[in-house]
Amino acid sequence: MSAASRAPLRSNRSSRTTHSTRVRRRAALTAGAAVAALLVTACGSGGTSGGGGNTNFVTGTDGIATVAEGKRTPAPDLSGKTIDGKTLDVADYKGKVVVLNVWGSWCNPCRAEAKYFAKVSKEYAGKGVQFVGINTRDTNLKSATAFEKDFGISYPSLYDPTGKLMLRFEKGTLNPQTVPSTLVLDRDGKIAARSLSALSEERLLKMLKPVVAEK
């Protein structure tokens, strides 16, 4: 075979190799994007709740989900040590409206909403409302306590560094990868409202006021 006749074969092989390399690179980029997306949801402004499950949530255009009184389910056992070493059981607040806020000192959206939670918790302290935090993925307690001090958080927070408390909720209620998240429990300890994103003062009150007004 002449050199001239062998040249196209080398060209074809080179073309196939280049194409294969491009395919592998595209696959690697796609996989990298998927991993990045998962990391972003660990502290983001939304997301779907843990998948599956019939939790009777009806989500409004503002992202706040509510459950009609007759269709609500009880919150799971939420008890343990707080970040300041005390023992807390959310069930002890039955008879009050409870606002549960999942947060971490490492989470920028949590920092953005913290001042609103501090303010509203104080305004509603004498109105039969109790705020409770669930601090997650903070392996350093100093960071968690500094967060509370910085933003004037006076209500207790359960310490849940591995996210075990979040996994106690019925499937479809919370997404452990979505922080911050907020739930409002009615006076019977049942889940009445939910947000899977950071809240402004206006949206927090929009979640809270209708439940407080229930008789």
Rank of each mutant, 00 (worst) to 15 (best):
C43V: 12
A37K: 12
G47A: 04
G44K: 14
T41W: 07
N54E: 15
T61Y: 03
G46S: 04
G44W: 13
A42Y: 04
G50Y: 10
N54T: 14
G53A: 06
N56L: 06
A36C: 06
G46T: 01
N54L: 14
V40G: 04
G63N: 04
A42K: 08
G46M: 04
I64L: 02
A36S: 08
L38V: 06
A27Q: 05
T66Y: 02
G32F: 04
D62F: 01
A31S: 07
L38A: 07
A34K: 09
T59K: 07
A37C: 13
G44T: 15
S45D: 07
G32R: 03
G50A: 15
V58G: 01
A37Y: 12
G44V: 12
S45Y: 06
G32E: 06
A34M: 11
G51H: 01
G63H: 01
A37L: 13
G47W: 03
G51I: 01
A28P: 00
G44R: 15
A28T: 12
G53Y: 00
F57T: 00
V40F: 08
T61N: 13
G50K: 14
A33T: 07
T59D: 01
L39T: 10
A31K: 07
C43G: 14
G53E: 03
A27D: 00
T55Y: 11
N56I: 00
D62R: 11
T55E: 09
A36I: 06
A28M: 11
T41P: 02
G47Q: 04
G44E: 11
A37I: 11
A37V: 13
L39W: 13
F57K: 01
F57M: 00
A42D: 09
T41N: 13
V35P: 08
V58A: 07
A28F: 14
T30G: 08
T48S: 10
L38R: 06
S49Q: 11
T59R: 07
A65P: 00
A33N: 06
A36N: 04
A65D: 04
A28E: 09
N56S: 13
G63I: 08
D62E: 01
A36V: 09
F57W: 00
G32V: 02
T59N: 01
I64N: 00
A42C: 07
V58K: 06
L38K: 08
T66F: 01
F57V: 03
T48E: 11
V40N: 10
